[in-house]
Amino acid sequence: MSVFTRRTLLGALASSPLWLQTAWAQSTSLKISHQFPSGSVAEGDFRDRLCRMFAADVEKRTRGSLKFSIYPGSSLMTTNSQFAAMSKGALDMSLVPLSYAGGDIPEVNIGLMPGLVTSYEQGYAWKNKEVGKELARILADKGIVIVSWIWQAGGVASRGKPIIEPEDVRGLKVRGGSREMDLMLKEAGAEVVNLPSNEIHGGMQTGAMDAALTSSTSLISFRLDEVSRSLTTGRAGAYWFMFEPLLMSKAIYDRLTKDQQAAIMAVGAELETFARKAAQQDDAAVASVYQKTGARVVDLNPDALKKWQEIARATAWKDYGERNASCARLLALAEQAM
């Protein structure tokens, strides 16, 4: 019977290929947290799928020196705790709506500014424009690295009539998703409700809210068709576009090797094509899902979109630009990118 000693282990490692020695010495396990329903690489909410695809590809490219555990459905920590945990280095990665951190970092609310982004082309162009570079710099200063740029169009699920024109929300309890979205809704006469998207179903089921604005994917994944009689889709245009990136703690990122960092950023960038296609597919698919339950499905027309945008400019945009010089600069850069 042979005895496996520390000397035997070190000898075996020394005679192994260099890449294996590196992987052994630097093997790191990272946690990815998100609020969305669990699935697989092939099926389910595309945001969960993207996290799983990212983990598998990075592990392969780093030859196992980086491994990942996925925690869907807020199973690791509460939804609203994720951003702060990453900024402190207490959480490695998360795919999270950026505006959820808007209470502490007002600049990030530009990621859900009503009417500012009205197409995928415009949103994804931010990455290489000054507005995107400035947003990335602000996040880096807060301890956050953008790994994948992900934009999603959204619509409105309603317990009653379809929400198309601004006057349609008057007197209703509505979830917008950000301070700025709420300002626009208040001006239109709504009573705003603040809940993360994974809690909308319960709120609409109990009557705590009458309508909710959220992404097409969340309108499907959180089964809001079960508690809705009407749906206004974002497939023909939307004033609700959410920046919902895959993020990483800068403190954790900075501890990795250059090769590991390069693998993370390369895979993150490559998955943006998948994210955009999947989001657009959900914009179309959501209509079918709701029609099957008998809900009334409508699209937002250009005239209504313009009305919402005019309200947003006078309320949300104005308020955001007046919060501080950094917000004013970001807004000006975003308007240049329109």
Results as ranks from 00 to 15, higher is better:
93 M>T: 10
100 Y>Q: 04
100 Y>H: 02
215 S>D: 03
167 E>S: 14
133 K>C: 13
267 V>A: 05
199 E>V: 06
185 L>I: 08
158 S>H: 01
290 Y>N: 09
88 K>Y: 15
138 I>Y: 02
300 L>A: 10
152 Q>T: 11
104 D>E: 15
133 K>F: 14
70 I>V: 10
69 S>E: 13
15 S>L: 11
127 K>G: 02
252 I>E: 13
33 S>I: 00
147 V>N: 02
219 L>I: 12
316 A>D: 07
212 A>D: 13
180 E>S: 15
23 A>P: 00
54 F>T: 08
262 A>I: 03
10 L>A: 10
123 G>A: 13
317 W>C: 07
198 N>D: 15
87 S>P: 01
338 M>V: 14
35 Q>I: 09
81 S>V: 15
160 G>E: 12
321 G>Q: 14
215 S>H: 11
73 G>F: 00
334 A>S: 11
247 L>M: 08
123 G>P: 05
330 L>M: 09
197 S>Y: 13
299 D>M: 01
309 Q>T: 15
39 G>I: 00
229 R>P: 03
101 A>C: 10
29 S>I: 05
173 K>Q: 09
207 G>E: 15
151 W>D: 09
26 Q>V: 03
297 V>F: 02
202 G>K: 12
138 I>M: 07
75 S>P: 10
89 G>A: 05
249 S>R: 06
32 I>D: 00
48 D>S: 03
237 G>F: 12
101 A>W: 12
283 D>Y: 07
80 N>K: 15
88 K>D: 15
50 L>S: 04
166 P>K: 08
73 G>P: 04
294 G>S: 09
161 K>W: 11
291 Q>C: 01
314 A>S: 13
107 E>T: 03
23 A>I: 04
148 S>T: 13
75 S>V: 04
209 M>D: 05
253 Y>A: 05
117 V>I: 13
2 S>W: 11
239 Y>G: 10
271 L>F: 03
135 L>T: 06
4 F>C: 07
139 L>W: 03
193 V>C: 02
155 G>P: 12
110 I>P: 00
45 D>R: 01
55 A>T: 02
110 I>T: 04
264 I>K: 04
202 G>E: 15
283 D>A: 10
9 L>I: 06
321 G>A: 08
188 A>Q: 14
68 F>G: 00
105 I>N: 10
14 A>S: 06
171 G>Q: 14
231 L>Y: 00
